[in-house]
Design a protein around this nucleic acid. Structure first.
Lengths: 304, 304
DNA sequence: CTGTTAGCGCCTTCAT
DNA sequence: ATGAAGGCGCTAACAG
């Protein structure tokens, strides 16, 4: 048994000598999100296939943590970094690139960095999602979005607005809060206590959707009969009985795998050049959280 | 800004010289389990407080992966290991201790290793859980357990059996399968297709419970009206709308934090001596997956 | 107190 | 083919 062999080589010596640790890092922002779990699995797999070890870190959605941890990882001379960043501000990526450490980014465009990015098109997906609700007959829609600093939140809000504009509808309201269940809960409370209630809400993230659904339940509003909820990234999970939310799914596994591949191409020297941007398609999945509005029968077909 | 400083020290040199990396490893077996997420958070926090960095690895419930990864981690000279092991076989722990690397174990007793262990009492908890069902009036109970090689599965089965024996009841049946939703699904199918159906099942793990609930739904058996399901470790999660299963909760965060503390006591040299075993209390939480049996009214009080 | 040096374990080079 | 030596970046020990 190799594993039983007494002698274990010291990679510190080897790495010091060769300038390669054969370790890459995956830095995710929120480990509570099942989305991140999928990334951890996929990156680990893709890296192991190519002989690399992966170490994971989570930043709890804090840019300061993100920078601290990238620094620590680079101190330990990881060969590269896959980053699922907190925001698209350039600081973290700048820092890593400034240290000549290869990096690839999962999630959203990085306008100020010439870096490899793998993402999906949030804006278009949000439009599609909103159109789906409009197609069901909804006319009063609200948006529960994420932090303004985060690109996905902005893009999803834009897509929402664009779909409404195309249908010549006005949004009932538009909210921002952190990407957490608690944030969703508070936004939904506000929505339900306002004068005009929407018949459907678009949420910018799965945790927000969970919070929104909890608030609806607590205030006695039935989903989907009285209120439809749609969301993003409600990934199927072994730990959950049933997918519940109608929403947009990103090809998480493929995104993570691709980001790892791009990274290792740079690490191994097979590629060096300008940043590549790969945009993968999303898909809409319909589940139990949506229905036509209660008063749908009264009106004609609403599809433009 | 410190993080902007151009120079980043090379920990490889430092570590090679000082024999300390200030990094500890957390090796969990199944990252799909929300249980593991909590461990990742808690160990990370406890270690950071004490100036250590944590790297995570998951073994996909394979002992081979576990050993491989421990080896890789030790090659990179982590200062210690927190292990949430696949089984209680001594090989992994032996290997780590044989390399003079401090280790502490989360989960279950390690009869063949003199090692620090933090765990809860699965057997007693399973008894309590089963007694709860009996107290509701259930007399026909089945057990959907985990792999025979895994201690928690054995202990939980023993507790189940003990509670039944104390109430002078016979189990309807007893099944073993992997700790996965799929395993639970198959066991539940078998249970529901047998001649005598139980009115309640005890599952040995949250993923098994999810599979069991899916099978019940697919076969048209209503939970909890026609069938009660109880489980272990159905940790509350931000990603889930509501805790659904009645079951036993372990103090996951406290266990992980304690294991980290014990480990770092050894790493720092504050403690060296024989293995310590810390057993933390569990608690029973009642949710929507249990009810008295449909025919409960017909009989008298069943509590012994 | 500052400056120099040896050596941690490994790989690469060069000599035998 | 096998063997010896230098140096990766760092710190601890020691000298000035």
């Amino acid at each position: 048994m190799i594993a039983e062999l007494r002698y274990v080589p010291n990679m510190l010596g080897q790495s010091l000598r060769t300038n390669r640790t054969m370790v890459i890092a995956l830095v995710v922002s929120d480990i509570n999100n099942p989305f991140a779990i999928q990334q951890i699995r996929s990156v680990g797999e893709a890296a192991r296939e190519r002989g690399y070890t992966v170490v994971f870190t989570h930043t709890e959605a804090s840019e300061k943590n993100e920078l601290d941890q990238l620094r620590t990882l680079i101190e330990h001379r990881v060969d590269g970094v896959v980053l699922s960043p907190v925001t698209n501000r350039p600081d973290s990526v700048d820092f890593v690139m400034g240290q000549n450490v290869p990096i690839s980014v999962i999630g959203y465009p990085m306008p100020y960095n010439d870096v490899d990015v793998v993402r999906s098109d949030s804006r278009t997906a949000a439009e599609e999602l909103t159109r789906y609700l409009i197609g069901l007959g909804h006319e009063r829609l609200a948006m529960l979005s994420g932090p303004r600093e985060i690109v996905t939140a902005r893009e999803r809000t834009q897509g929402f607005a664009a779909a409404l504009a195309a249908a010549e509808l006005e949004p009932v309201s538009l909210h921002h809060a952190p990407y957490t269940a608690d944030g969703g809960y508070r936004m939904m409370q506000a929505v339900l206590q306002a004068d005009t209630r929407p018949t459907a809400v678009v949420t910018a993230n799965n945790l927000i959707a969970v919070g929104a659904a909890r608030a609806s339940r607590d205030l006695g509003v039935k989903v989907p009969n009285e209120l439809s909820i749609v969301t993003f990234d409600d990934a199927p999970s072994d730990a959950v009985l049933d997918p519940y939310f109608t929403g947009i799914l990103q090809p998480t596994a493929e995104m993570a795998e691709t980001a790892t591949r791009l990274l290792l191409e740079r690490v191994s020297g097979d590629y060096s050049g300008e940043g590549r941007e790969i945009v993968l398609p999303t898909r809409l999945e319909v589940h139990a959280s949506t229905a036509p509005p209660a008063d749908a029968g009264k009106r004609g077909d609403r599809t433009s």
